[in-house]
């Protein structure tokens, strides 16, 4: 199943077009960040490690944003395409189990996104050249990005199993990406502002944990906050990272259960 999926993906035009575009955009963003940093601070007074950190952070956030935009393309159409080309009935009446079908689709869509992650390594090496970034930062940021992408792939596959048409599944997947990335951030900042103006206390903002949990809660499903948590020193933000990881893994697991249920129902085949 995985071999078939990967073979089909690599034969599509987007198999080479998307990685190319991805690298071009990522390269452009990092180059822009480099010139912005060096121009602002002046060519003489700048520390190499500062440039390295700026480039690394720019790369990590840009990469996450781009991959979040690409995940629905690979996952949300994965099962609906079988429905559209009427091959799902043949798969379900073969000896492949629903779990094997899901696993094949999941691994192939995730592997393709991971391929993009790997192709960005040369761009990442630019940040290394300036220093200021250690292996731990790279590891934690990469691990966090992979958890987020795996969860979003699982959600995309759920959408794919729930809808008949790829266009609908992809639209709902994108809506989910926007909801967790943008809507949660807006909800957080609006409620924080309201809370601060109501209390007018200096304590708010000193520490993440001084903010009431009811206000913080939406940010635990925000992928950019999750990534931010991975950069913080372990003692300071480690609990937040763990909470985010639990939330994303739970969301992903829920999506898996619902997808398998949809595949086993089979009524829409």
């Amino acid at each position: 199943m995985i071999r078939k999926e990967l073979r089909q993906r690599m034969r599509e035009r987007r198999g080479w077009l998307l990685p190319s575009l991805y690298l071009v955009v990522l390269g452009a963003v990092v180059t822009f960040a480099y010139f912005l940093t060096t121009t602002e601070r002046g060519a003489t007074g700048i520390q190499g490690s500062t440039v390295g950190v700026v480039l690394f952070l720019t790369l990590a956030y840009s990469q996450l944003a781009l991959l979040l935009m690409l995940v629905p393309i690979f996952s949300a159409g994965s099962i609906t395409i079988e429905k559209e080309q009427r091959t799902l009935a043949s798969l379900l009446t073969s000896l492949l189990t629903s779990g094997q079908i899901w696993w094949g689709k999941f691994v192939s869509s995730l592997l393709f996104v991971l391929l993009l992650l790997v192709t960005s390594l040369p761009v990442l090496s630019m940040a290394f050249a300036f220093g200021g970034i250690g292996p731990w930062e790279v590891f934690s940021a990469t691990l966090t990005t992979i958890i987020i992408l795996a969860c979003m792939s699982a959600i995309g596959l759920y959408c794919s199993s729930a809808f008949q048409r790829s266009v609908h599944a992809t639209a709902v997947s994108y809506a989910t990406v926007v909801a967790i990335s943008v809507v949660t951030a807006i909800a957080f900042f609006v409620r924080l502002t309201m809370y601060e103006s109501a209390h007018r206390q200096a304590t708010v903002g000193h520490s993440w944990y001084d903010i009431p949990l009811s206000i913080r809660a939406p940010m635990y499903v925000n992928p950019f906050f999750f990534l931010t948590a991975s950069f913080a020193p372990p003692k300071q933000l480690y609990p937040a990272w763990s909470t985010c990881a639990c939330v994303f893994i739970t969301l992903g697991a829920l999506a898996i259960v619902l997808t398998l249920r949809n595949l086993r129902r089979r009524a829409e085949v």
Partner: peptide, 21 residues
């Protein structure tokens, strides 16, 4: 179901193929 699948061949009313294979 699994044993049944070993014994049957099902041709749906609108069978699909993977065009790119």
């Amino acid at each position: 179901a699994r044993e049944i699948k070993r014994r049957i061949g099902y041709l749906p009313d609108q069978p699909g193929v993977y065009q790119d294979m």
